[in-house]
Nucleic acid binder design. Structure first.
Lengths: 234, 234
DNA sequence: TTTTTTATGACATGTGTATGACAAGTTCGG
DNA sequence: CCGAACTTGTCATACACATGTCATAAAAAA
């Protein structure tokens, strides 16, 4: 797994710097923004794994930004930890109300910060990764690491499993061979593009006895797609 | 890609001039308007890629124009950067509230202006490229790379897909065969002009079962056009 | 009608995809 | 430590589809 990327949104350069150093020591990648606008841009463009958001920001406050993020479908999965200067009950309540996943009051120890970040990340990732995905009787269970079709177990290799896992969590979207390679094999892996074809075929072969191979669709000239809809009008 | 066109709406000729020069140096095409009415006309007629909108304008204020643009379906995709004279908290909030994509306070450096423009354009274009285009039940979804007519998948070749994609994002406008070749096939490609006819026919054939071939209209002596309106009075 | 422009069907070619086989590498139990 | 069973990446080949061009029919303009 690649390192988690954390965005710090705070108008105090000193605080950003301090937090950044602490996070980098804890093996995170750090992004920084000095105001809510810039923070929002970065979140949209870079999709960090977690946002540390200062309560008090010039013009658009942190709480306002949090509200927007949680309202937007594309960003509401990103966990937020609010940083508040004073330990006021009201803030805490309001912050959690807005959808922040945790809050921490300044001054805080870097140790505490790190441990809270890890806790939130753990919750977020486990929530996302441990949920079984089911589509028209085809079911992928990440916990038992198994595929089943109408409760019948489906046999396939590990790579095919990961491929299907990726497809099922990214449905209705066409991916190029290169993208699949990056996503399923991981970046910096030298594998022939055409190898994808073979694994696609193996995956289809495994799903075929149940008729689910129709979900794995070829997008000629582009790559492949997982789709519940029919490949073409019949 | 052709150069991005930026509209400046400001009542101060000096400021318009200064910004225009800076933008042209940065390889943008510049349009100018001295008041909100004129600005609105130009936006409707020319559809610039981005609008720089002064906060304070005579009669109809910039913020009022922004509100109108964002409320109108045909213009609400055009990104707006507000220019405000004073760094007032209220303005910023209100501006973003109205739907401006960013704001910048005078005086500003041209460097900052350019970089903000680029940031906003980048976000807008990536958002636009991912958005499905839908016309009277005919829907093109770039994400899943698929065409559907009333949710029925439509089958066509890659070239026809790109052709339709171009047409649907440039509706109501006639293109010569040469222009289509440049836009859809790419420049520096030697292909017979008449080949377009064949691909037009293939595209029509794919759309015909759903009646959508009526959108692909011949403009005799010129080329072709995608139009929702009927080709001729019947 | 004659001329010009577009529509259509057919076709050879080229390009991208599917498939089976295989060799090298892994895993796991004995 | 060794061998059986399984994985995995690559290749060669078969195949399907997409593409550009032509010849001809059809339609529109002159």
């Amino acid at each position: 797994m690649s390192r988690n990327r954390i965005l710090i949104v705070d108008d105090e350069p000193a605080i950003r710097e301090m937090v950044a150093v602490a996070l980098e020591l804890a093996d995170f990648d750090v992004l920084e923004a000095e105001n809510a606008q810039r923070g929002h841009e970065i979140i949209v463009d870079e999709r960090p794994d977690l946002v540390l958001l200062d309560w008090m920001l010039p013009s658009v406050t942190g709480i306002e930004l949090a509200r927007r993020l949680k309202r937007d479908e594309t960003t509401n999965e990103i966990p937020i930890i609010m940083l508040t200067a004073k330990s006021e009950e009201d803030n805490k309540v309001q912050g959690l109300d807005v959808g922040a996943d945790d809050y921490i009051t300044k001054p805080f120890s870097t140790r505490e910060l790190i441990s809270r970040i890890k806790a939130v990340l753990r919750r977020a990732s486990s929530a996302a990764a441990e949920k079984a995905i089911e589509v028209e009787g085809l079911c992928l269970d990440p916990v038992s690491h198994r595929i089943s079709a109408n409760d019948e177990p489906v046999d396939m290799g590990p790579t095919e499993y990961r491929l299907l896992e990726f497809f099922m969590s990214h449905q209705e979207r066409a991916y190029s061979r290169t993208q699949l390679l990056d996503q399923v094999w991981g970046a910096n892996v030298y594998v022939e593009d055409r190898t994808i074809d073979v694994h696609i075929r193996r995956l289809r072969k495994a799903l075929a006895p149940f008729g689910y191979d129709r979900f794995i669709q070829t997008v000629r000239g582009t790559g492949y797609r997982f789709s519940v809809k029919a490949a073409k009008a019949s």
